[in-house]
Design a protein around this nucleic acid. Sequence first.
DNA 1: GGACACATATTCGTTCACGAGTATTCGTTG
DNA 2: CAACGAATACTCGTGAACGAATATGTGTCC
Lengths: 214, 214
Amino acid sequence: MSKRRKVGNLLAPALLATVIQRPTHPYEMASLLRARGKEDDMEIKWGSLYTVVGNLVKHGFLEVADTTRRGARPERTVYRITDAGRAELVDWARELVSIPQPEHPKFKAGLSVLATLSPDEATTLLRDRLDRLEQAIAASRASLTRYGRDVPRLFLVEDEYELAVREAEAAWVRSLLDELASGAFPGLAMWRRWHATGEIPPEMAELAERGSVD
Amino acid sequence: MSKRRKVGNLLAPALLATVIQRPTHPYEMASLLRARGKEDDMEIKWGSLYTVVGNLVKHGFLEVADTTRRGARPERTVYRITDAGRAELVDWARELVSIPQPEHPKFKAGLSVLATLSPDEATTLLRDRLDRLEQAIAASRASLTRYGRDVPRLFLVEDEYELAVREAEAAWVRSLLDELASGAFPGLAMWRRWHATGEIPPEMAELAERGSVD
DNA sequence: GGACACATATTCGTTCACGAGTATTCGTTG
DNA sequence: CAACGAATACTCGTGAACGAATATGTGTCC
């Protein structure tokens, strides 16, 4: 499938896209990213920053342009992008945009063990999530409007995308909650009985053994 | 925020949820998960499986129940869940369900470097993505209907969730494509000119320096 | 009946991500 | 003008994640 990259960390394309504008030192790359509101995108980890820059250099995507010192502060190494780096950035961008990848959000992991909770508790927790989601959505919408005033739309698409996805999630949770509240959720009675008595319902017994070894 | 777990890997709750049914050896945990169609959820990595089980043991969430051998095959170690393990599973499930976490899908990383591509190429690539998304959605829908025949809805919620999110993504991409095709996308002319001439448009010059150091 | 693919079951070594620490300087507030 | 918090700039060690290798068992197709 998608050929495996020499440098795999998703911080890398963001860094390349920063350095492509002009040579920079690592700390400034992070600072520029942050100023553009990508902190949420990338959650910049200081530990990774220097490792990733190092790897980019090792594979010829960046090269040292200069080293300077201001006062007694640690020395700065300023990096410049190479032709290979430009090529890698464009190629990677193409791949990221055009090929949907299976994602593994935490919520999915949570849903896949939802059965460990009782239906009543699940309902309460889902309601909590919905509240939090709605708050996050409102905040995100507000911040988009604010940024929208002086940042071109082109640099806000990721945030618009995220907002759209979060809204879809909220809608889905809402509809699940409806089914749980109204009792329309199929198998709800079984689920409830199972948690009340602790007995594995016959409908599930055979199911649980699927994939056994031996 | 969410207190940091002794064992952080999201494979862990899935494993605990498997072992809670009856004692099992690692390979069988994976095999059971796979049979339940969680392979996509978790993308089981053989390398991680044994590390994670080991860590679960180290922190007292699992304990050795038995070791057996069949023929000349490697020895199996069968694990059993502990009370601490049960508590951890439930607590973790609660957290995963009720607290939305910032996610970092690859597409978002792609969108955040979308400007490195020309508007025309971006359009083509987004169309590719939409095609692939639609195929994935159709496949996912088909598999849900098939499973739905004999697996209770409760064990398919993650897949329903994923489907809903993918559909939202497709809708969002579609609407972005419309704006690009019709020319309604704000700043499209600027974006196009910039890629044609290579000159940084004045609207962006000041923007690009935001967050500079010094 | 022999060959080949697929399943069983795990170990090991390497790479990589990242948290936490460090040391200086700047800006601000009382 | 002193003091303190924030920003600057990076280093290092730990531990987790994973790829790849290993080796036998089992089913099946001709």
